[in-house]
Design a protein around this nucleic acid. Sequence first.
DNA 1: AGTATGTTCTATGGCATAGAACAAATAGGG
DNA 2: CCCTATTTGTTCTATGCCATAGAACATACT
Lengths: 111, 111
Amino acid sequence: MTEKYLSRPEEILLLAVWKLRENAYGLAIRNFIQEMTGKYWSVGAVYVPLERLENRGFLKSHTSDPKPERGGRRKRLFQLTRAGLRELDELNRINAVLWQDYRRLRPEENT
Amino acid sequence: MTEKYLSRPEEILLLAVWKLRENAYGLAIRNFIQEMTGKYWSVGAVYVPLERLENRGFLKSHTSDPKPERGGRRKRLFQLTRAGLRELDELNRINAVLWQDYRRLRPEENT
DNA sequence: AGTATGTTCTATGGCATAGAACAAATAGGG
DNA sequence: CCCTATTTGTTCTATGCCATAGAACATACT
């Protein structure tokens, strides 16, 4: 394979990190994604690939200080690396190409 | 999981079948996809998931008559089922939601 | 203690991917 | 006219990695 692209879960996770900005930690990402997609995501389905994305260099993380709230534990905050951003741009480009005709020729209806 | 969505290769394959219409058979799909994505796809990376998509009810196929051309063998022509189309619509919808902010807030540049 | 928020750990099955093997049609030189 | 080479196409199957689930663990407040 020339160079593999991101899987769908990985794409969604990176986008979530991008959107949540300084508040991108595991559970927040999970909630966010569940709302966006309308589907259930197990805890593992979030944390495991996040780890992998960090190892591959698309994300970096650091641990926050605990907050004085009920259950306010330290959080592991994620951030896109330059490579991660580049990857999103690339995906965005490919997506646009892939879907352009479909969007144009197949409006709302669903039959 | 509420109901799993298509993987990226599956998404790309369905879109290719949709675009190629009455000419959607294995090798044509492969060529098409390689051009669209600019990446190498092995034969297996095309046929194996096509099979799976048919088993799951997103595609149906029939065998064409052989053509009187060099190597003009029977082809296995694929077609989207109603469920397959529905799935593409659904993906299209989710994609739009996922990417809308990114597209708006992050134009061409890549830094 | 009890409850809420958060992360780590680890097992399992399924999918992605590669590429050899197989099949069948025509071309074309002897 | 064969018979072999070439072209186009599909099937088969092995391997590793990823997706996903959920229990276990950690820690802060009440």
